[in-house]
Simulated scan of single mutants.
Amino acid sequence: MESMTNTAATLPDFVQSLPKVELHLHIEGTLEPEMLLTLARRNGVHIPYRTIDAARAAYQFADLQSFLQVYYLGGSVLRKERDFYELTQAYLARCKVQRIRHAELFFDPQTHLANGVALEAVIGGIHAALRDAERDWDISSALILCFERDRDPEPAVALLERACRLGGIVGIGLDSAELGHPPGRFQEVFAVAGSLGLHRVAHAGEEGPPAYIWQALDVLGVERIDHGVRCLEDPVLVHRLVDDRVPLTVCPFSNVALKVFDQLSTHNLARLLKAGLWVTINSDDPAYFGGYLNENMIDTLSCLNLTARDALILERNAVTAAFCSDQRKQSLLKELDEYGASPQNGL
């Protein structure tokens, strides 16, 4: 059989069955319009959409700030532990279908606390769904608490300490509106997280400049950069990222929806790979940006004339960058190797 080529017939089939890892996924960003309306009715929360079509039409954005306005409105319908369980379980059911074998989920507790929701309900609901998916579907996972960078950083340490007492989180992140909110403002809480042995990641270099990536690395001490696509503007930074093997959790559909790139065909993912950067593909907020992990991979690889071999490289990168045990990584890498070596895949 000839080597797998990048054709409409073969690449989607290859990606659909490829064992995958997702490292950049906001669980609140998986709130599909149907669930949005269901939870709004169930919890008596007023939203300005009366139909699924109206809600879906609102999922169109000019930039990150306009997206966040709709995103936080969606988050307001999540009020009870049951809601967080159902939201997370629905995403994990998609993981099962899309052959996502390990998923790392961000959540935004500050949004829910501001809506009067107990932290115990948020973490309890999400974590119960993660446990069930591991038991029933052998999908491993990790939960990362994100701080919203456009909020006051002062209460962050107390919130982190509360979350750690409840258990269930493996790390912290930094998200929300990037421009005008440099990572360095959150130095204290990231230092505390490091002292507690938690993993640290941060959104940087999507809308914000390369300087934000430098800050995330040198001030916050992060292990991964979420997005990071603007790093190519700074050759010295690229060398740093390559030399230190810092993973980038790139989200192509998100970048296009938020106008970082005009269209997928102009995305710089292929150039990131060519530069030797440790790149992964992820779906970010898939309900809002038009596709989950498989769709992001298939469309991006196709538009950039990348191949099934590139898909394997991206997934090996993701497994190696994951916050899971060495034993789990070896198991996932074995699955990838066996899949790539299968004669039916023609690699």
Rank of each mutant, 00 (worst) to 15 (best):
E2K: 13
S3Y: 15
T7G: 00
A8K: 06
L11H: 01
L11T: 02
L11I: 02
P19D: 10
K20T: 03
H24V: 02
H24G: 04
E32V: 15
L36D: 11
T38P: 07
R42K: 15
G44D: 13
I47D: 05
Y49P: 14
R50M: 13
R56N: 15
A58E: 12
Y59S: 14
F67G: 07
F67L: 12
Q69T: 13
Y71H: 02
L73N: 10
G74N: 09
G74Y: 05
V77S: 07
V77W: 08
L78G: 03
L78S: 07
L78R: 05
R79G: 02
K80A: 04
F84I: 01
L87G: 14
Q89I: 01
A90D: 08
A90G: 13
Y91Q: 07
V97Q: 12
Q98P: 10
I100H: 00
R101L: 10
R101G: 06
E104V: 07
F106P: 02
P109T: 03
P109C: 05
G116C: 14
G116K: 05
G124F: 09
G124R: 01
L130S: 02
A142Y: 08
D150K: 09
R151E: 04
E154G: 12
L160H: 02
L160T: 01
A163R: 02
A163D: 06
L166K: 05
I169S: 07
I172M: 02
G173D: 02
P182C: 15
P183M: 02
P183A: 11
P183F: 00
E188F: 12
V192N: 00
G194Y: 04
L198E: 14
R200W: 06
E206Q: 03
E207L: 15
G208F: 07
P209K: 08
Y212K: 06
I213N: 08
W214C: 04
Q215I: 14
Q215K: 10
A216H: 00
A216M: 08
G221H: 10
E223N: 08
I225S: 00
V229W: 04
V229G: 11
L232Y: 10
L232C: 11
E233S: 13
D234T: 09
V236E: 11
L237H: 00
V238H: 09
H239I: 10
L241F: 14
D243R: 12
D244H: 08
D244M: 08
D244S: 07
V246Q: 11
V246N: 09
F253T: 08
N255R: 10
V256W: 03
L258I: 15
T266W: 06
L269P: 01
R271L: 05
L272Y: 03
A275H: 03
A275R: 04
V279W: 01
V279M: 07
I281L: 10
F289V: 07
Y292E: 13
Y292T: 09
N294L: 01
I298Y: 00
I298C: 04
C303T: 11
L304A: 13
A308C: 00
L312T: 05
Q327A: 15
S331M: 09
L332I: 00
K334I: 11
Y339C: 10
Y339V: 12
G340I: 05
A341E: 15
A341K: 13
N345K: 13
G346N: 11
L347Q: 06
